[in-house]
């Protein structure tokens, strides 16, 4: 599934960048001062972000090496109250785009995974551990820790609410 999507995503990403660069070139021809100021800010932000990007890349390599989708799906199939814990941990550890997980989660729902647990898993997918250095860089460690704790708590509330609604 991942291989099917990756090449398209990569080429689309480059098309996006090329379009933006062409837009900048066009803007430079007509309003050079504006595009020059914007490019100056771009360089400033990029230089500040480069060490963070390097750290993010290292974390992505580590998480992809040690955590497989099969490992996550195996734990989501567990029974009892602990399944909420596994849905949270599974969501947090899940890598790649959210849509990549839809078919795998759909398969588990056929085997009895509740709507609430599915929602809880997908909500926690939003917490991306490898990207946290960037979040900390912009918002500070206190905000990021609070946000993670509140989001995890809300994911359970959301899951239980969904279970109650669809009953």
């Amino acid at each position: 599934m991942h291989n099917k999507f990756s090449p398209r995503r990569i080429s689309a990403s480059w098309y996006y960048l090329i379009t933006v660069v062409l837009f900048y070139i066009g803007l430079f021809i007509f309003v050079s001062d504006r595009s020059t100021a914007a490019f100056g800010l771009f360089i400033e932000i990029l230089l500040k972000m480069l060490p963070v990007f390097a750290f993010v890349f290292a974390l992505m390599v580590l998480s992809n090496y040690y955590i497989s989708s099969a490992f996550i799906m195996k734990h989501l199939e567990r029974k009892g109250a602990r399944k909420w814990l596994y849905a949270i941990i599974g969501g947090v550890l899940a890598t790649g785009p959210a849509y990549m997980w839809y078919p795998l989660v759909a398969d588990l729902r056929k085997k009895g995974l509740s709507d609430g647990l599915t929602a809880c898993f997908l909500y926690n997918w939003a917490i991306k551990l490898p990207l946290l250095p960037v979040a900390v860089y912009y918002f500070g460690i206190q905000f990021v820790v609070l946000l993670m704790i509140v989001m995890i708590a809300i994911s359970i509330v959301q899951g239980m609410t969904l279970n109650a609604i669809v009953k």
Binding site: R9, S13, L17, S35, F39
Partner: peptide, 26 residues
């Protein structure tokens, strides 16, 4: 896989920082 994922993400990041810079200065 990580290198591929990051390679796919990097142009989007560059493009976004370019656009954000333009919006912020405009």
């Amino acid at each position: 896989m990580s290198a591929k994922a990051f390679a796919g993400m990097f142009p989007v990041l560059l493009g976004t920082i370019l656009l954000v810079s333009l919006v912020v200065t405009s």
